[in-house]
């Protein structure tokens, strides 16, 4: 099977994740969409690793996972902190930047 198919799949998943970030309002769902995009990127890395015949891509994908884990921890802590002060998990409610 042509490994390029994985790349097409990754592109689709990435696009879906991006749309999710834009259209969903629940901060946690937005976060999950970001995770989806990261996973799609990881899939391309693994695929390229296979195409190139070395393991560098996999190592970078591993690093991506670690960074994603950090990001989830901090991001969710931020969501909790915001929820605690505003009683809302909607990212539209945190729109004080324009003021």
């Amino acid at each position: 099977m042509n490994p390029y198919n994985y790349l097409y799949l990754a592109a689709l998943l990435f696009t879906i994740g991006a749309v999710g970030v834009v259209v969903r309002r629940n901060a946690i769902v937005v976060f999950m969409c970001i995770e989806l995009m990261l996973n799609a990127a990881n899939l391309t890395l693994v695929t390229f690793s296979r195409l190139n015949g070395n393991l560098n891509g996999q190592v970078v994908a591993f690093f991506t996972m670690v960074v994603a884990a950090c990001e989830v921890v901090v991001g969710l802590a931020i969501i909790v902190a915001i929820y605690r002060s505003r009683r809302s998990a909607s990212i539209d409610d945190a729109s004080l930047l324009k003021r």
Partner: peptide, 10 residues
Amino acid sequence: QTGYVRAYAA
């Protein structure tokens, strides 16, 4: 500048 994160993401 609407202040909405989602608008910036878009």
